Amino acid sequence: MIKKLPESVIRIISSGQIASSPTAVLKELIENSLDANAKK
């Protein structure tokens, strides 16, 4: 039997905001900062 996921889970998956580990979160923050040419 296939069950539909809750809407909250669907939104998280579709936005790509699932963190697999704290290291992955840090990596994403650093990459976003570099992409945005952040100075601080």
Rank of each mutant, 00 (worst) to 15 (best):
D35P: 00
L29G: 10
A36D: 06
I18V: 15
L29T: 14
S14C: 08
L29C: 14
R11M: 07
V9S: 03
I2F: 13
K4G: 00
Q17R: 15
S14E: 15
K39C: 02
N32V: 11
A38S: 08
S33I: 05
A19T: 06
M1R: 10
T23V: 09
I30P: 00
A24H: 07
L5K: 11
I12D: 06
I18H: 09
L5A: 13
V25W: 01
I10T: 10
P6G: 04
K40E: 13
S21R: 05
A19Y: 10
R11F: 05
E7T: 06
I18M: 07
L29W: 05
L5Q: 10
K39E: 07
P22V: 15
L29D: 06
D35F: 03
I18D: 01
K27C: 00
M1H: 11
I2T: 11
D35H: 03
I12V: 15
S8N: 09
I18S: 05
M1Q: 08
A19R: 11
S21W: 01
E31R: 13
L5Y: 12
K39N: 07
D35T: 08
I30G: 00
N37W: 05
L34N: 03
S21V: 01
N32C: 07
I12K: 15
M1S: 11
S33R: 13
L34F: 03
K3W: 05
K3T: 11
Q17V: 05
K27M: 02
K27Y: 01
K3Q: 14
S8M: 04
M1L: 11
K4I: 02
A38L: 08
A24Y: 00
D35V: 04
K27D: 06
S21K: 02
E31T: 12
I12M: 13
E28M: 12
E31P: 02
L29F: 12
A38W: 03
E28W: 12
N32I: 08
I18R: 06
K4H: 01
V25H: 01
I10L: 07
I13D: 01
T23F: 08
T23W: 09
S20P: 14
A36T: 04
S14D: 10
P22F: 15
K4Q: 03
S21Y: 01
S15H: 06
I12F: 03
N37T: 09
I18F: 08
A24E: 13
V25S: 04
S14V: 05
P22R: 15
Q17D: 13
V9M: 09
I13S: 00
V9L: 15
A19E: 13
S33F: 08
S14M: 11
K40Q: 10
K39S: 12
S33M: 08
A36H: 03
Q17C: 12
I18T: 12
P6Y: 13
K4W: 01
L26Q: 12
I18C: 06
S15I: 02
E31K: 13
A19N: 11
A24V: 07
P6E: 09
D35E: 09
